[in-house]
Design a protein around this nucleic acid. Structure first.
Lengths: 201, 201
DNA sequence: TGGGTCATGTAACCTGTTACATGATTAG
DNA sequence: CTAATCATGTAACAGGTTACATGACCCA
């Protein structure tokens, strides 16, 4: 997957591994993160696949660099990937995995958790985001038809965050109800912790 | 990550690898999928770690099975994981990765794509979902304080789908605007396809 | 007789994470 | 003087995917 992202970035202009890392960190961070260790490895395999070529550039005053360019084969692969809608969309949410098993902990603890999680942001720090936006807007003037798509991903991030907050509010309400119900039923035999020995009916 | 999911499931009662697969397929499918190949491998490493124990059960009329049970060490690990909020939440959306690079394709193609994607559901087929719900509701009667959390994950799925539809509508509107602008500007030199040679300013 | 369910896995591969290592230049 | 930026990676490991393989029983 990362390969396609790297390919797309190089398709927008030659780049070094380091530059690719900065774009991930500053602009794609809200939906994908990449470490240099993986980037450099993928670059090598992509070169072997013939999707990109490498040029060593000697510099003075700063370290030498390896600049990567897309090949016609690489561009063909990029288009093929963009047009391939056959792969099923995989959802994988480690956070929902946790939620599913939260019955192991007391309600109070989970309530506290949702109250805190409600205000966690997906976006990286404001400064970087602003800088990245400026870059993207500059590009937008040159190629408005490419920049829209970046805007669409940002809007997704915003809508996702909003939905997450609303979901947290819903969770908090549900757990408060549960708490009330448990307290109202008093000694109706609902142990709030470790019901270890029993099995479901 | 899958390890913790498996641990949580075994924590709710002894299970075979096959049963774990069916729970993933029928109930956790909207936020995590797991293949048997991975499940059986994880079970072995979890046994080595002392989180679970294995019992071979001979059956007649059907294949023998290996039933796994959680150990006190496994339960401790489950609680540790549930309480560990240090790991940063990782978002990774292959679909947004594609969106980001859609500028390579003509607007018409992308519009068609969003119109189709708008109606794609995250949830597995109705039949299975209903069956899984029935199971969960039965459990809910026995342990209402555990079943809420399952309900919360389902609600997340619903809210996510709703948000996704709204986002698609937004994307469609944006791309229609772009289309109109491009047509209005007529020959204002905005090639809708492959601007290969040029670099950004 | 053909497909679904129950039940087990292995092997090879690809993808992602964590930890480590180096070193010059530049701005505060 | 110290931290950030530019610039490169390697090694080991963890996690996930794809493809393959087997076999009995039951229902239509």
């Amino acid at each position: 997957m990362l390969k396609r992202g790297i390919l797309g970035l190089i398709g927008n202009g030659d780049k070094t591994g380091y530059e690719i890392m900065t774009v991930f960190r500053d602009s794609l961070n809200h939906f994908w993160m990449a470490q240099t260790s993986q980037i450099y490895r993928e670059l090598q395999t992509m070169e072997k696949a013939g999707w990109i070529t490498q040029t060593h550039v000697v510099q003075t005053g700063r370290p030498d660099k390896n600049v990567f360019s897309i090949t016609p084969a690489g561009h063909a692969e990029l288009l093929r990937w963009l047009r391939d809608h056959s792969a099923p969309v995989r959802y994988r949410n480690p956070f929902l995995m946790k939620t599913f098993f939260m019955g192991e902990l007391p309600v109070e603890e989970n309530l506290a958790f949702f109250r805190a999680f409600r205000d966690v942001s997906v976006f990286p720090d404001e400064g970087r985001q602003a800088a990245a936006s400026a870059d993207m807007y500059r590009q937008a003037i040159a190629h408005p038809e490419k920049a829209v798509y970046w805007k669409l991903t940002i809007e997704f991030g915003r809508m996702y965050e909003k939905m997450q907050r609303e979901w947290c509010d819903y969770c908090i309400r549900e757990l408060e109800d549960l708490q009330r119900a448990t307290r109202a039923g008093e000694r109706t035999d609902v142990p709030p912790h470790h019901p270890q020995e029993e099995e479901e009916a």
